[in-house]
Simulated scan of single mutants.
Amino acid sequence: MTLRRSLFALLATSLLSSSAWADDEADPKERWYTAIGGQYQTLQDESAALADTLQGGCQNTNAVRDAWLEAYKTWQQVRYVDFGPIEQQSRAWQLQFWPDRKNLVAKKVDAWLKAPNPPTPEQVSADSVALKGFPALEYLLFESENGDTLPLESQQGCALASAIGQHLATTTQALNQDWQAFEEHYLNTEGYADITVESALHGLQILDDKRLAEPMGLRGKSRNGYLADAWRSGESVTLIAASLAGLEQSFVPGAQALLQQEGEAELGQELEETLSETRALAESLPSGLAPALEDEQAYKGLQRLYVQVEQLRQLMEYKIAPALDIKQGFNSSDGD
């Protein structure tokens, strides 16, 4: 994405946010709806920029990787939203097929790399979710058996990446449009305030249990970097930081407004401070999680991050949710 386009996306998000947040009496759901919509718009823009980069050719691998990472980070920022249009057509899985314990992404991508012809975006759409989204592109961008040649560098691999990129752009555009159409239902249906808080908490639970504890070997098993998301690119911690930043940007202001209404403003301040500290810590660490498992000094940094995330989760689970009289239930995406 060009600097001009990046600044435009940032300005658009800022204007969307400020319009809902300028009034201290603004409804919490209005703040959430507007902020999440700004993130979906940025996701659409970054995904379109990635698709354009891929259509321009794959000669500049670094440029494609940069566009892929920028788009992937924008998805992480709004990944915690697990209700509404994202539930349609398994869109979350289409954007990020993970966890992938059976290495289905590699199997699906390899099958198309060996096919007589690369798939069209329509064929990608009709195929498995393992072929779609950011992990499949990551395989094409970073997987290398001999340390030299990348799948992206072959004619078949570049065409496959372009088809996946086009499908990603189409999916995020539809997601953004559907969120815009979701406004009246979200704002006028009782229960969505609770659902939004629950989705943020669930995002933290996944971050705590699946994205940190499991690969770090903190659940009674040995350390295993292959359990982390984005292990091929070495950007696991980068994406964790993006997820935390997304919560700061689109969840915290609405949560603070809701807590203010309940006479619990101090919990809103504690949430903001704890989340900011946790995000800053994540941003200070090396970008890859898997390499840190082999380096005890780097592993200590991951342990500090895990403790911070655990504290953030406990704040949400044992203080904020009860203060808002939210009774947590089973989430359809719990476990795997």
Rank of each mutant, 00 (worst) to 15 (best):
T2G: 15
L7V: 10
T13M: 11
S14Y: 10
S14M: 13
A22C: 10
D23K: 13
D24E: 15
P28A: 11
Y33D: 03
G37F: 02
Y40E: 03
L43Y: 02
Q44V: 02
A48K: 03
A51K: 01
Q55K: 07
G56Q: 10
G57R: 06
T61C: 04
D66R: 12
A67L: 07
W68D: 02
Y72M: 04
W75T: 03
F83A: 12
P85G: 12
Q88M: 12
W98H: 06
D100P: 05
N103C: 04
N103A: 14
K108T: 13
D110I: 11
D110P: 02
L113S: 06
N117C: 03
V129S: 03
G133M: 07
F134C: 02
L137T: 02
L140Y: 06
E143D: 13
S144Y: 11
N146A: 12
S154H: 09
A161Y: 03
Q177N: 15
D178H: 12
W179D: 01
D194G: 10
I195V: 15
I195W: 03
T196I: 07
E214W: 08
P215Y: 05
G217D: 08
G217W: 06
K221V: 09
A228T: 07
W231P: 01
Q256M: 13
E264L: 03
T274A: 15
L275I: 07
T278Y: 05
T278L: 05
L285Y: 04
A290Q: 14
D295I: 08
E296K: 15
Q297A: 14
Q297F: 10
A323Q: 09
D325L: 10
D325M: 10
D334P: 01
D336M: 12
